[in-house]
Design a protein around this nucleic acid. Structure first.
Lengths: 262, 262
DNA sequence: ATAACCGGTTTGGGATCCCAAAAAAAGAGC
DNA sequence: GCTCTTTTTTTGGGATCCCAAACCGGTTAT
């Protein structure tokens, strides 16, 4: 249970990235107090938070404006995160005390392999795969020796699909047999990249670890761009969130938590 | 003229990075109200700011604790910034509409060259060199096509020596003739790296632009480490700020602004 | 008819107040 | 004398109040 302003910030943040506010809508403290049934103090704290995150702008004169990120913003952010992760992979490969954490990476890879082999593409399996994927990526960030990389990533992970280790799935694709096979191939490809990264780190091949990690995140960017081309109309943030299992999971979890608390 | 909380955050931030608070000192809202002669509202806004920046921690139970960065933290942050800049250099080299901004880079390089040639290592000259250096680096960040890189850099530039284009100078070194020559060599080396980066971007050689930019920031990291070895006792953040001309300049500027406003 | 001016209203920044929870201090029991 | 409990004090979160600056609408003068 966080304080009210933190949760409030999360709610407003969700509203903004989900597009519940217009592109450049003016936002007012009083209105937020009214809709969320809180006083102005937590509202102002939350707004400062969101301003710092770049999701709202304070106008010169008076008032706030929402600064809703578009798909291109998300793609740019994914690129930045991927680049930071590649630095982490390189540093971890150079780190002398990396060996003790290697088993964690190996276990995550094997678990993903096992889940792919079972081949059940249902919600639970995908959730497990995503969890192990997050473990893999987070471990590298945390054990690379440069804590500031993980910190920087955490500062930009308020946007959709920017949680470390987030993966993208297309619900529609998963509904057809051919789509399931395609997703299965994607997962295999991703995990084989994990293996190469793991081996490079193990051997201390820093250049290769960095390169493959970069390729690994490029894969995700290109997959999103495939969506962009396929959908005739413009791809919205909401679509991306629908595709991104982790975010959906988190959203569901939040809702459950909220219902419980009320 | 920013609002009180912003300026207050800047002041507390300065106090923290300058080490005016103990390593893990407990910090109290009331005390800050008293020392800075403001009410609790702006104090709390400022503290949320600093918490988001990682400079203070909120304890589980009650109260804030300062999380003063040490030299190692700064080095890690410089590494992150350098890595982001190398991404920017690569992207700019790949960008089709980079040509229009090339003259800005060229002018900055030439101005630095001119100032080095004059050879006056006084405060004004160094200030000008640093300004042009900042222009060079900021231009690449702003024109690389991925605005999120610059945004991310701006989110981490609250720490000393993390302003984009900040350079390190040792006041003591500048006081001797031999030291001046060494600094002169450093500047020449740095600007020659600028030239290589410029040419790589011009030619569209993305790999080289990225590589040299990385090397360019590594140079700074290694120079700081030279300090670390030379000073017998442990290097403090305060030392780094003394070395970093930009920060000092900004501090002076802030002071002037404050005096004017009072 | 347009533009400048003026008063009312909205809105955000800052100060103050209240309260609950936690830390610190005092007191009781062993 | 030490420890556990109770009381007091401190402290931070939330609500409310006040005010000045900005916005809006209407009126008036050119």
């Amino acid at each position: 249970m966080e304080s009210i302003d933190t949760e409030l910030a999360a709610r407003i943040r969700n509203d903004i990235v989900l597009g519940n506010y217009g592109e450049e809508e003016r936002i007012s403290e009083a209105r937020l107090c009214d809709t969320h049934k809180v006083s102005r103090t937590p509202v102002r704290l939350a707004l400062r938070m969101l301003e710092h995150e770049g999701l709202i702008r304070r106008s010169e004169g008076r008032g706030y404006f929402v600064n809703a990120p578009n798909v291109n913003d998300v793609l740019q952010a994914v690129q930045v995160r991927g680049h930071l992760e590649s630095l982490a992979a390189r540093l971890m490969a150079q780190s002398p005390d990396r060996l003790s954490t290697l088993p964690i990476l190996e276990a995550a890879i094997e678990e993903i392999d096992r889940l792919i082999l079972v081949g059940k593409m249902d919600h639970a399996s995908i959730r497990l795969i995503q969890k192990q994927n997050a473990v893999f990526h987070k471990t590298i960030l945390e054990c690379c020796g440069n804590d500031f990389i993980g910190f920087t990533c955490s500062r930009i992970s308020h946007m959709p699909m920017l949680e470390v280790g987030a993966m993208v799935f297309d619900r529609q694709v998963l509904s057809t047999k051919e789509g399931k096979e395609r997703s299965n191939f994607r997962l295999k490809l991703g995990n084989s990249q994990h293996k190469v990264i793991f081996e490079a780190i193990q051997k201390g091949d820093a250049v290769r670890a960095e390169g493959v990690m970069r390729e690994h995140s490029n894969t995700m960017i290109e997959y999103i761009q495939v969506f962009e081309k396929r959908t005739k109309e413009e791809l919205t943030i909401k679509d991306l969130i629908d595709y991104s299992g982790l975010s959906v999971m988190r959203k569901e979890h939040d809702t459950i938590g909220k219902e419980k608390s009320l």
